[in-house]
Design a protein around this nucleic acid. Structure first.
Lengths: 131, 131
DNA sequence: AAGACACTTGACAGTTTCATCAACTGTCGT
DNA sequence: ACGACAGTTGATGAAACTGTCAAGTGTCTT
């Protein structure tokens, strides 16, 4: 009753009676789980400081001290961000002696970042005029 | 002084003295503005409800009522989410009679979403084993 | 075994985000 | 011009997120 509502919900609405009939086509919702997981990835990337971090790691593996040196922030702050990125499995770690090296978890992530930055770079988005 | 710190910051740290010399290569930080803008886009996509919305709009243009019918949520809630997405210029609107039709702002956004969902679909990410 | 370096973690405070509801605007039919 | 439908907006409170700092763990050197 709840699930079948999608196809018929519009029937008792004034809105779609005459105006957009093709709206009743199946078009199932995306799997909730996939959406949640994807959203979690995007959310993790949706912060300027973390994105900087990811962008650096996209170039090559780095240890926390080096990351701290490049970004102007204290080490615990960087570490906390990395912790979050690791929790979402965007980065993975490798210990070598005293250092812990971080890198992007896979190159699918790398392409996501590259893709996003490319879009963000278009000063005011050539495709979408400023309102 | 502050900006040139990047190349030399590691010099007075024990860490990189002997261990990763190549760390001193130029590698400038990403433009802060680009990072901020990109992060804002990601953040906007970083919510399951909004992502659902975007995924629907990726298929075709829809009015608010139709979106409300497909997702099981009340209209003001949907509208608020759309407002945010519009503020970040991920979607654009077109009025036709009583209806306001939403669509993705450009197909760069569409590919970002598609890309992300593809990554999120990989059940537990075949490339990155569960820790 | 002790000290130093490289991190990580836990906890608290300040901020941000999000859903919800009531009130408001805009458009159409009569 | 009135009522109904379609949608937006502002305010409010609860929940989630982030930075910061003190204290902890792990590894190397001597």
């Amino acid at each position: 009753m709840e699930t079948s509502r999608n196809e018929e919900a519009s029937d008792d609405r004034d809105c779609s009676d005459l105006e957009h009939l093709e709206a009743k086509s199946p078009m199932p919702l995306l799997d909730q789980e996939i959406c949640k997981r994807t959203a979690a990835i995007f959310r993790a990337m949706g912060d300027a400081s973390r994105l900087q971090l990811l962008a650096l790691l996209a170039k090559r593996e780095m240890c926390v001290t080096e990351l701290t040196g490049r970004l102007s922030d204290n080490l615990p702050a960087i570490s906390q961000r990395l912790k979050l990125l690791r929790a979402e499995r965007l980065v993975s770690t490798r210990r070598q002696g005293k250092h812990i090296y971080y890198s992007l978890a896979d190159n699918h992530i790398a392409s996501l970042i590259e893709n996003g930055l490319a879009h963000g770079s278009e000063t005011d988005c050539k495709v979408c005029p400023p309102t």
